[in-house]
Structure formats: C-alpha cells, structure tokens
Design a protein around this nucleic acid. Structure first.
Length: 530
DNA sequence: GTAGGGTTAG
C-alpha cells in the first residue's frame, strides 16, 4: 500500500489556523470520502479539534467516539484535552474507558491523566492511578514520576511528594520545580524558600516561581533581590517583577524597569505592555504611553482585547479623549472591557451624550453590559445632568439586564438627582436603598445640598454622615465649607472645633501631571512645586 | 508518522 498523502485541506488544517467552519468542512469531506477510517487521518483532525479552542473538545470527542479502532495516540489526545479543560473529570472517565478496552495506556497516557487529577486536586484518584502505574511497572518513567510529584504537591500532600522525589533515581530540576510551584501556588513562601535554597540546580523557571510567589504575597523587596540575583532573566521574569511594582502602585518603578528591560534586549509581550500602559495611565505619562503604542506598531505586536483596552484607558486617563476614541474606533475585536474603558473615559471627560451614543452602539452590537458599564453610563448621565436618560438607563439595568444595583449605581443616581436639584427625591432614594452604611452616597447627597443651599437637609445629612463614620473628615469639611459660603462663621468654628476634638485630619489631595516627559506630583497645600 | 513532566502576567 502506498504512503498516504493528506489532501490540501487537511494540510492547511494543521499547518495554519483555520476557522471552525473549515474544521467542519474538512471533517465532512473525510467522512464522505471514507478518509476518516484512516487512523492517522482521524488522529490529525481529532488533535486539531481537541486543541482548537475549549469549545471544540466535545466535537473532537464525538469524532473520537465514532472512530472504529482508536490507537493510543488518539486516546491520549482526548485524555489530554479534557485534562486541561474546565471538566478534567471527563479525562478520568475516558481513561477508565480505555482501561476496559483493547488498547493499553502507555507512558504518554499517565502524565495526562495525572494532570487531570492535579487540576481536580483529587489525591484519591491520583493514588489509584499511582497504584496502577506501579502494578504495570511504569513507576520509573521520569515524566510519570514528575507528574506524580506535582499531583501530590498541588493537592497539599507535600510529604508524599517529597518522599517520591527523594526516592527517585534520576531526579531533575523539573522534579524540584514540581514541588516548588505547588508551595508557591499555596502562598507558602517560607517552605518554598527552603526548597529553593536546597535545590541542587535551578533553571529560570525556578527563579520565576519564587519571584511571582513573593509578588503574590506582596513581598516586593524579596522578589526584587532574587530578580537582581538571578543569572538569566526571560520575559516571564521581567513581567513578574513589573507586575509586582504595578500591584504595589509603584508606577514610576514600572517605567524604569521597562527601560531596563529594553536595555537588556528582552522582548516584551502583551503582558509587559498592559502593565506599562496602565502605569502610564496612572502617572498621566502621555508621551511614554505614546512611545509604547509606537513600539507596539514597530514590533508588530498584535493588539488584542487587553492591549486595546489598556491603550484606550491610557489615552483617556492621560487627558486625550480624542486619541482614546481614535484607538477605540480602530479596535475591531472589541470586548466588554474595551467598551467599558471608553465609556468611563467619556464619562470622566464630561461627554455624557457621546457616552450614551456609544452605549447604544454597544447594545446594538449585541454586547451585554455589566455592572461596570452601568456605573460609567450612569455617571456620564449624572455629570451631564441627563435626568430622564439616567432614569431610563437605571431601569434598563434592573429590568432588562437583571443587574442588582450596587452602592455605586445608587451613588450615581443620587448624584444625578442632586445635581438637577431634586433633593427630596435624592434623599428618599438614599434612605430606601438596600445598603445600611454607604458614606459615599451620603457624602454625594451632602454635596448636592451644599450646591443648592439647602442648609436644613445638609445638617441632617451631615449628622448622619458623622454617625456613620466619626473619624472621617469629609462630613465636617463639607458642612464647614457650606457654613463658610453663607457667612455663618460661628457655625464654621463650631464644626472645626468638633473636628479637632475628634482628632480628624484631612488627607491632603494629590495630583500628577506630565510636563516634557517628566511626571510631577503635587500635594494640596504644598505651595509651589520644585 | 503525530505527543509527554514543572510556566508567569492583565
């Protein structure tokens, strides 16, 4: 029999990314021509379907169940796909089916099944399979041993894992990493450190595990000293430490590290850039953000949903809503975060009408808005004083989208009612909303009382606010400002006296701005900035 | 004839 040559459609199937419909077409073609009965051809389409995306596993499985004599490769492919899916128990089911059939599991099968046990954190199943492995004499395969170690460690059975490691004849760095990563995953950094110090050899992953573990536990200095100490850094190392600084809100250090990374000639990826862009956004560092954008174009980095959102957010937080909009419009594959990001930007820039227009486009495009979306849209209505629209949006959220309003949503509505001077209705809403303690909302009501000069309500609200949180300054400050604006200086003194007696102090406000590529930070009351 | 263990980040 001559060697089987795959038809072009099947070559393209594995050689490049094809669409789901092409997968279906190829499958149909194979069924029609009888090619599907060729085990090797069947294995290729099953592998493709099993790894295409999480949704197509069931499709792979249905081809698999219609395959007459699947070989171990095909069994393994299905077992592996389920092991990494959201339903790893399916992997075990297929494995037990395999045990009852005519094809024996091989040295490839067990790492996959054990991965399923690891993902399920199921030591009981794992132990059963461990017994089976020993029975059929496969207990000395390094891949299988490492999978076993990881399975025990990830389920918290560190003693069993360690025991296996100690008994191994040829343990390697992955055997150690298997336990190390499980310690890190559970945040057991002291144990992890002891293991790390004990390891006879380490690779870049060992260091990365430690760094990301320290970062996850908020121990940024420990992470940094390992990062500085490690012999070789890859993109994961850089990303881990950059993420650490981003989590710690140390944004200027994020930018410095990003520069160091360029200098070290390590190519950044989407993760790096999302972090860097969000640092630019938080610092208001427009020119550096633009530099990153240009860098992405130059290095042909694909702008996915996350990056598009980060760019839109960066432009709008750096004050350029026009560039944010241009970025938004250029983004073809928008996801919910991209929409939310532009809506938040339009809202903070005061473009209420535009935000509503984008919001209806979002609905027309078939996107389901979430809680975050409605906070932006409602606050856009509030800032622009769009009363009827705001009410309609609030109802839409509850009635059509079944979203239970949070304090923030109520806050926006109270803001809106307060802004247009409907103080009674605003107060009524605050008193009837299903949240007992929500100082933010009361504060917003107080602000509205102040700007509309309703002293009576203001005093009532301020009293409530002080009752909710006697140590917070905002109630006192707003009340005293209001008295001051009316010239009621005795009342001002009285409030200030009470505030002092409670030892309440106002945190100074802080803002940042970029001038000529340098970020300046200002504290309120600080005077001229040097 | 195809594949395997430990992988980070938004």
């Amino acid at each position: 029999m001559s060697a089987w040559l795959p038809p072009p459609s099947i070559v393209s199937l594995t050689e490049m990314t094809t669409s789901l419909s092409e997968l279906h077409q190829s499958h149909a073609h194979m069924v029609k021509t009888g090619l599907i009965r060729d085990t090797f051809a069947a294995s290729r389409i099953i592998t493709f379907a099993a790894t295409f995306d999480p949704q197509t596993i069931t499709y792979a499985n249905s081809i698999f169940t219609h395959t007459d004599n699947p070989n171990s490769y095909i069994w393994n492919t299905i077992i592996r796909a389920y092991a990494n899916s959201s339903t790893p128990e399916q992997s075990l089911l297929v494995f037990y089916q395999m045990l009852h059939g005519s094809v024996f599991p091989d040295n490839y099968t067990f790492p996959f099944v054990l991965k399923a046990c690891s993902n399920l954190c199921s030591v009981e199943e794992g132990e059963q399979i461990h017994g089976h492995i020993l029975k059929i004499g496969m207990g000395f395969d390094v891949y299988i041993q490492n999978s076993l170690i990881h399975m025990y460690a990830i389920s918290g059975c560190f003693d069993k894992a360690r025991n296996l490691l100690d008994k191994m004849l040829e343990r390697d760095v992955i055997s150690w990493n298997a336990i190390l990563s499980a310690n890190v995953g559970r945040g057991l950094m002291e144990q992890a450190r002891r293991l790390f110090d004990e390891m006879p050899e380490r690779n870049v992953e060992s260091w990365n595990f430690m760094i990301s573990g320290y970062v996850g536990s908020g121990l940024i200095e420990e992470a940094r000293s390992l990062f500085d100490e490690m012999p070789k850094r890859d993109v994961v190392s850089w990303n881990s430490i950059i993420t650490g600084y981003a989590h710690a809100s140390r944004f200027s250090e994020v930018l410095v590290l990003f520069e160091d990374m360029q200098f070290a000639k390590v190519k950044s990826d989407g993760c790096t850039l999302v972090n860097v862009l969000s640092a630019c956004a938080r610092l208001g560092a427009l020119s550096q953000g633009e530099w990153v954008h240009a860098y992405m174009d130059k290095n042909e980095i694909k702008i996915d949903g996350f990056l598009a959102t980060a760019l839109v957010d960066m432009y709008s937080k750096c004050g350029s809503i026009e560039k944010a909009l241009r970025m938004f419009n250029r983004t073809l594959r928008k996801d919910i975060s991209t929409w939310n990001s532009i809506l938040a930007g339009l809202s903070t820039h005061g473009y209420g009408e535009h935000a509503l227009k984008i919001f209806s486009e979002m609905l027309a495009d078939g996107f389901a808005p979430n809680e975050v979306t409605f906070v932006s849209v409602l606050s856009a209505c509030s800032r622009a004083g769009l009363l009827d629209e705001g009410r309609r949006v609030f109802d839409l959220m509850v009635e059509v989208h079944g979203i239970k309003p949070t304090v923030e949503h109520y806050g926006c509505m109270v803001d809106l009612l307060g802004r247009v001077g409907m103080l009674e209705e605003a107060e009524e809403l605050v008193r009837t909303m299903p949240f007992e303690e929500a100082p933010m909302v009361w504060e917003s009501l107080l602000g509205a009382c102040r700007s509309h000069g309703d002293v009576e309500m203001a005093e009532r609200v301020a009293r409530k606010l002080l009752e909710l949180n006697p140590l917070d300054s905002s109630g006192y400050v707003q009340l005293s400002n209001m008295y001051a604006s009316m010239g009621r200086w005795n009342d001002v003194r009285e409030v200030r006296r009470k505030m002092k007696a409670q030892q309440v102090r106002k945190e100074p406000g802080c803002s940042m701005i970029e001038v000529d590529g340098i970020v300046h930070e200002f504290l309120a009351g600080e005077g001229l900035h040097s």
